[in-house]
């Protein structure tokens, strides 16, 4: 009687296993790109909500008088740090919007398989970077 092979014929690739990930393991753990898109969607959402009152303050100032508008242009928009923060918020809203549209497509169960989830998550990053760059270039 011939012996039945017990070991699998194809050796499985060694994969790291993460359970209750520890702080020291974080350096080796890479979130897959749909996961990165998901957490960035949350971070941009919170950032936009927290900054909303400051954005309203700037809107109020810009509408109050011509001088108020000029304060925004010459003091806030002319300041490199403030400009980077505002363009960061522009990226936040564009990213949050496009990632949200992707999530709504996924509500319909489309783009749920691994490859479509990966491709569309990559597409969200690429598209929001392009849109942000275009608007930033136009407003500079």
């Amino acid at each position: 009687m011939t012996e039945v092979p017990t070991a699998p014929l194809v050796k499985k690739r060694e994969r790291p296993v993460y359970r209750n990930i520890g702080f020291a393991q974080l350096a080796n753990y890479r979130l897959p790109i749909p996961g990165i898109a998901s957490i960035v969607h949350r971070i941009t959402g919170i950032a936009l909500f927290v900054c909303l009152l400051f954005l309203l303050a700037m809107l109020q100032m810009s509408l109050k008088s011509e001088a108020g508008f000029e304060v925004f242009r010459s003091i806030i928009w002319a300041n490199p740090i403030a400009k980077v923060v505002l363009l960061g918020l522009l990226f936040a809203i564009v990213f949050h919007m496009i990632a949200g549209l992707r999530h709504m497509v996924q509500d319909s169960t489309a783009w749920m398989d691994l490859s479509a989830a990966r491709t569309s998550a990559f597409g969200v990053f690429a598209l929001s970077a392009v849109v942000t760059a275009l608007v930033a270039w136009r407003l500079w």
Partner: peptide
């Protein structure tokens, strides 16, 4: 957001009078 970004892209940076 599409409306506002579209306006900015088409018309460029507004001055005080255009904005208000």
């Amino acid at each position: 957001v599409f409306l506002v970004l579209g306006l900015l892209m088409v018309k460029g940076t507004p001055n005080a009078m255009q904005w208000q």
